[in-house]
């Protein structure tokens, strides 16, 4: 399948805001029109073509190449199609996206998938802070969709998450799943400290190790093999996450909390013994 390819012309060090780079916007546009899309470079608008070499025939599917560390908001609000990024991506990647798929070869900046409502975000490298979380003041963060990170995620994954699935192959920074309202967060590496602080509902599943004990407002309930995990683990396995047979056959310790907020959340910890 052919795609529209955007190759960064130079090393972009000043901030670029590329919220015009979505399949929705470029669908049906000819190469020239894509090159003329406005893109914010620092405080000035520039034609996309000034910063990126455009090739391909104007298909909705996008391929981005080059170091895009300072290129922010790629795929923001997209509803369909695919974006494949070969390199790093900047802040707010796929924020508020509602559908389609973004894949990133390497690392992404903070707030990737913030307020995401649908679609899929696959990150083969590491994710920055606030992955799938909420912007300041908002009651709800991610409300749907799937985020899969092969590497690690920084602090505050899935904060105020309301629905959806986040899986991190590596470790997380602190406060994973803080203030979660619902949804599922799977961590295969080390689960960062203060997991689930202020969570109302939702599941945090630790399949690796723990950085520290659970907060005092979480209480041990039992050791069991939750049936629903089978569905999730099999799903994650299909998407290449490091699920082992032991995870599938294992027992899990269940902690419930945070009792200060509602207490109906859970941290499930894979029991190695």
């Amino acid at each position: 399948m052919s795609a529209t390819v955007l190759q960064a012309r130079a090393n972009l060090t000043l901030p670029v805001e590329a919220d015009s780079i979505t399949p929705d916007r470029i669908d049906g546009l000819q190469q020239v029109a894509v090159g003329n899309l406005p893109i914010l470079y620092g405080r000035e608008w520039a034609p996309l073509g000034d910063l990126f070499a455009v090739s391909g025939d104007g298909r909705a599917d996008l391929v981005l190449e080059g170091d895009l560390t300072h290129v922010k908001r790629i795929g923001q609000g997209m509803t369909r199609g695919t974006i494949a990024i070969h390199g790093n991506a900047g802040l707010h990647l796929g924020s508020q996206m509602r559908g389609g798929e973004i894949t990133v070869d390497s690392n992404v900046g903070g707030w990737a998938g913030a307020h995401m409502a649908g679609g899929r975000l696959r990150i083969y490298g590491d994710a920055g802070p606030m992955l799938g979380s909420a912007y300041p003041g908002e009651r709800r963060g991610m409300t749907g969709g799937v985020i899969l990170v092969e590497g690690s995620a920084a602090a505050r994954v899935g904060e105020r998450m309301r629905r959806g699935l986040i899986a991190v192959g590596g470790s997380t920074g602190d406060f994973p799943g803080a203030r979660m309202i619902a949804g599922s967060l799977f961590v295969f590496g080390q689960l960062g400290p203060r997991a689930g602080a202020g969570m109302k509902r939702g599941s945090i599943v630790s399949l690796g190790s723990l950085a520290s004990g659970v907060l005092p407002t979480f209480q041990y309930s039992c050791r069991f093999a939750p049936g629903f995990l089978q569905l999730y683990l099999r799903y994650l396995l299909r998407w290449g996450m490091p699920v082992t047979p032991a995870h599938l056959q294992g027992q899990y310790q269940r902690y419930t909390g945070d009792i200060n907020t509602l207490g109906k959340g859970e941290i499930l910890i894979y029991d190695q013994h």
Binding site: S184, P226, G227, F228, L231, Y232, K264
Partner: peptide
């Protein structure tokens, strides 16, 4: 009130606590 909803891949499941564990 202790039931838990899970939405995966467009399908919603209910986890209903029972004496044995959970009924999915």
């Amino acid at each position: 009130g202790f039931q838990i909803s899970k939405l995966l891949d467009g399908r919603r499941f209910w986890r209903i606590p029972v004496m044995e564990g959970e009924f999915l």
